[in-house]
Design a protein around this nucleic acid. Structure first.
Length: 504
RNA sequence: GGCGCAUUCGUCUAGGGGUCUAGGACGCCGCCCUCUCACGGCGGAAACCCGGGUUCGAAUCCCGGAUGCGCUACCA
C-alpha cells in the first residue's frame, strides 16, 4: 500500500442520464474519499463524439448534488471543468510517445474492412497473430505510411500487445486476477478522424496526470483492466499505478442481466435519480426525486446494495456511511435491485421526519387542492397520518378528510359498517356530541364511551358507522383525534349530512 | 465460441474451519394492540448450487462441474 494521498474520480460518459448503478459507483467513490481524507474528482469522459448527448453533463451534476455527493475538483459553478474532449493535445503527446517507443502502431484498416474480416474469419481479433496481414505501419513501408497520413487517410493508433505474458491485476475486492496477454487484442487508443483518444488511453493518461490513487469502477471494466495495467507499464508509470477496485453490478430485479435504462419504465419504477427527457426522442424516463424519494433514503438504500457494515443496523446517514465505509466490506457478486425495499426505506425516513419538516411539502399539496388551513391544524394532521405514507405524494390520500368533508361514502365500507339501526344510533350520537362543551380528544371520548356503555351499545358498530360519516371510508386515526381536530361544528355538519345520504 | 468474475432464504445480506439445529432486513403469512386503516410488538414459512478432496471437523480452504453475469467495437 502506498502512502500517497487518496484521490479518486468519478468519470461518467455524457451519453444520457446517469443511471442508478452509476450513482452507486459515484457514492462509493465519494464515501471512500471522505473516509480516507482524500479528494473526489469529477471527470467527463466525452471521447466518443458520436454518442454525446446535450444536457447529460448538467444532469449528472444536478443528480449527484441532489444526493449530497460532492466533488472537490473538476466542477466549478455547476459545470464540469475537466472534459476529455478539451484535452486533445495532452493525449496526442502520449500517443506519440507510445508510437516512438514502438509500443503502438498506426493502422489504416477501415471499420468496413474490419467488419468484413470478422465475417470472414470466426473470432477474428486484431492482435499479434493477425496484425502482420493487416494494413498498418508494421506491414507498410515507412514512405507509404507517411504518404497516407499526408493524403489525409483516416487511421487509428493501436496498442502493440506482446503475446505470451501473464498480466496481473490486483483488485481490492477480488484479489489477484491473472490474464494472459494472448487473449488481449491490439485495442485502438486513438482515432485520427476526431483526434480523440479512446477510453482506454484517455483514462490512463488522466488518472496518471490527476494522481488518482484508487480506481473504483464497475465490474464491466475488469476484463480491460489488464490492458490498463499494460499501458501504465508502456508509459513508464507502473510505480504510481492506482489501486483497482471493481464493484459488483446492479442487476435487474427479475430475470437476468444488468440493470438497464429500459427496465425502469418496463417495471414501473425509476432507475434514474432525476426525471430525464431524451432530447432526440422526447421520451421521458422517471427519476427518484420526482417519484417522491428523499435523497437520504436513496443514498441509504443504494449504499446497502453491495456493501454491508457488518452489524444489524440498516440505517445510515451520509456521515455514518462515511465513517463506516470500507472497500473490503463490498460484496463480490451482483445485487438484484429490490424496489420494494427502496420504498420501505423511504417510508422509514418519512415517518422519522417531524411534522414541521414535512409541513412545506404537505402545504404545497394542500394548496394544489385549494385547501387553505391553519398551520397548527396541518401539523397535527401530519403527525396523525405520516405513518401511513410512503411518499410525500401519499399525504393527500390520507389527510384530505381533515380539511374537506366527504362528498361520497365508500360503498364497501358502507355495506360492511352501516347497519340497519345505524341511522338511529348516529342520530342519538349527534345529540350526545351536540351537548359536549369541551370537544377535546379526551373529554369527548369519555363522554361518548360512557354513553355507549350506559345504553348497552356496541362500540365497534357505533365507531365504525361514525367513521364512515366523518371520513367517508373505513380508515384513519382514532375518531376523536379526527373530530377534535376538525371541531364540533364540522363534526355535527358531517354527521347530519351523512345520516341523510346513508339512510336514503 | 473465447476469456474473466461470481454462486448462503424469493430479494439484500451476516458468516472468514468447531460458538451454524446458519443470524438480520425487505416481502409474505399468523397472532397481539385496536373503533377502522396504519404504526408498533410477538411469532412463522423460507437458504449454504452439485460432486470430489484437505481436515478429527467445512457454509467457511482446494479442485472439477453446473449455472448466472460481464467483456470480447475506430462505446464507455
Amino acid at each position: 500500500m502506498s502512502e500517497r494521498p487518496v484521490r479518486v474520480r468519478f468519470a461518467p460518459s455524457p451519453t444520457g442520464p446517469l443511471h442508478i448503478g452509476g450513482v452507486r459507483t459515484a457514492l462509493y467513490n465519494y464515501l471512500f474519499a471522505r473516509k480516507n481524507g482524500g479528494k473526489m474528482i469529477l471527470r467527463i469522459e466525452d471521447t466518443d463524439s458520436g454518442r454525446f448527448v446535450p444536457g447529460a453533463e448538467a444532469y449528472i451534476i444536478e443528480a449527484l448534488t441532489w444526493l449530497g455527493i460532492e466533488f472537490d475538483e473538476g466542477i466549478a459553478n455547476g459545470a464540469a471543468t475537466c472534459r476529455q474532449s478539451e484535452r486533445k493535445p495532452i493525449y496526442k503527446k502520449y500517443v506519440d510517445q507510445l508510437l516512438n517507443d514502438g509500443k503502438a502502431y498506426i493502422a489504416f484498416d477501415t471499420p468496413a474492412e474490419l467488419e468484413a474480416k470478422r465475417q470472414e474469419i470466426a473470432n477474428f481479433q486484431y492482435d499479434a497473430r493477425t496484425r502482420g496481414s493487416m494494413v498498418n505501419s508494421l506491414t507498410l513501408p515507412t514512405e507509404e505510411v507517411k504518404a497516407r497520413i499526408e493524403r489525409g487517410d483516416n487511421y487509428v493508433v493501436r496498442v502493440r500487445i506482446e503475446p505470451g505474458q501473464d498480466i496481473v491485476v490486483n483488485d481490492m475486492i477480488r484479489g489477484k486476477v491473472v490474464i494472459n496477454s494472448n487473449i488481449l487484442d491490439d485495442k485502438v487508443l486513438y482515432k485520427s478522424a476526431d483526434q480523440l483518444p479512446t477510453y482506454h488511453l484517455a483514462n490512463i493518461v488522466d488518472d496518471h496526470l490527476m494522481e488518482i490513487s484508487h480506481v473504483i469502477r464497475g465490474e464491466e471494466w475488469l476484463p480491460s483492466a489488464p490492458l490498463h495495467v499494460l499501458l501504465y507499464q508502456y508509459l513508464g508509470w507502473a510505480d504510481t499505478m492506482p489501486e483497482f477496485a471493481h464493484l459488483p453490478l446492479l442487476l435487474k430485479p427479475e430475470g437476468n442481466g444488468k440493470l438497464s435504462k429500459r427496465d425502469g419504465d418496463r417495471l414501473g419504477f425509476p432507475v434514474f435519480p432525476l426525471d430525464w427527457i431524451d432530447p432526440k426522442t422526447g421520451e421521458k424516463s422517471s427519476g427518484y426525486r420526482e417519484a417522491g424519494y428523499f435523497p437520504e433514503a436513496v443514498v441509504n438504500f443504494l449504499a446497502l446494495l453491495g456493501w454491508h457494515a457488518g452489524g444489524d443496523n440498516e440505517f445510515f446517514s451520509m456521515q455514518e456511511l462515511i465513517e463506516e465505509f470500507s472497500l473490503d466490506r463490498v460484496s463480490k457478486s451482483g445485487a438484484k435491485f429490490d424496489y420494494e425495499k427502496g420504498k420501505w426505506f423511504n417510508h422509514q425516513y418519512l415517518m422519522n421526519k417531524s411534522a414541521e419538516t414535512l409541513y412545506p411539502f404537505v402545504q404545497e399539496i394542500l394548496l394544489q387542492h385549494k385547501v387553505d388551513a391553519p398551520k397548527d391544524k396541518v401539523l397535527a394532521a401530519i403527525e396523525l397520518t405520516k405513518g401511513r405514507c410512503t411518499f410525500i405524494a401519499d399525504f393527500w390520500e390520507h389527510i384530505h378528510y381533515f380539511f374537506v368533508a366527504p362528498t361520497e361514502y365508500d360503498e364497501k365500507t358502507r355495506q360492511k359498517r352501516w347497519k340497519e339501526n345505524s341511522s338511529e344510533e348516529m342520530r342519538a350520537l349527534y345529540k350526545v356530541l351536540e351537548g359536549i362543551e369541551d370537544f377535546s380528544i379526551e373529554n369527548s371520548e369519555n363522554i361518548v364511551m360512557q354513553w355507549i356503555t350506559d345504553n348497552g351499545l356496541h362500540t365497534g358498530n357505533i365507531m365504525n358507522a361514525f367513521r364512515l360519516c366523518i371520513v367517508g371510508e373505513g380508515k384513519g386515526p382514532h375518531m376523536f383525534d379526527i373530530t377534535s381536530l376538525i371541531g364540533k361544528e364540522e363534526t355535527l355538519r358531517r354527521l347530519d349530512k351523512a345520516i341523510a345520504v346513508l339512510s336514503a
